[in-house]
Amino acid sequence: MNRLFGNRTAIAFLVLPGVAIMVFALIVPIGFSFYFSLTDWAGFGAFNPVGAANYKEILTADPVFWRSLVNALILMAVTIFIQNPVAFALAALLAHISQKASQIFRSIFFVPAVLSVVVITKLWVNIFNPTYGILNKLLRLAGLKSLAVSWLSNPHTALGSVIWIIIWQGFGWALLFYYTGLMTVPKEIEEAAVVDGASWPQTYTRIILPYMFPVISSVIVIDVISSLKQMEMIYLSTDGGPGQLTQFIAVYLYQKAFVASQYGYGNALSILFVVVAVGITVLVQRLFRSEGEIQ
């Protein structure tokens, strides 16, 4: 069957289109990006090579770059340690109620996840509006006037509010992953635990969670990637403000290139972004792989 499974012409026909598209739309642009990152180009007009000056400035003298990385880490932490456990708990609850009710609830929980980020963001920008938004109307009605702040521009609440929008939209996905993961837990191992006299918290911590480890780890990897990639939500709501408190690297590089006319600098940010994204993802995956082996 070597002729069937090892046919080189066939392999070439199957693989080349995909690889070609990826090289064209991913790899070559990154090559260009690297080239421009070594210049002081404004995006138009003449430019000079500046060597690694842009990189040096980003790494040594640009607090906004570090701020945006820290924000991504905060988002990651909130996603992993708050959103995920809640989604898991909810998924577990849904697994215990009737199929029909569970399906209805799951459909509702997932609605935000299918909508365009533009719709979601504008939705929440309006809800957070201090003049006519329903959140502050509600707070004032409840006599909590002092809490009715300007959510997206108050330095104390801006990052939290932006993270809330992101978590809110991502919640459906987390729930769905965990629910479908729970559905794959074989009946036998759980029954065996019940026979052994385990209470349900014990069943969860000793049997189900370890069984779910692959699912949990892949959800976390996905969360890590998407936390780093946040852009549109920020771009359409706070645009990184107030100050640079809600800045994320993808927004920042866009602003540098197209607002500050520092196209070369923006490309340097872009390259560092790739390095960080690939680096962190590989790191997290390694972490889980070795953990998985211990298990």
């Binding site: 330095p155 107030p242 100050g243 640079q244 408190l245 602003q255 500050a260 006319s261 520092q262």
Partner: peptide, 21 residues
């Protein structure tokens, strides 16, 4: 001045008027 000065100026103003600096 330069586009970059404009961007810096605006960012600094944003920080000033948010009470961050």
């Amino acid at each position: 001045s330069t586009p970059q000065f404009k961007d810096d100026n605006q960012n600094a103003i944003r920080e000033l008027c948010s009470g961050l600096i």
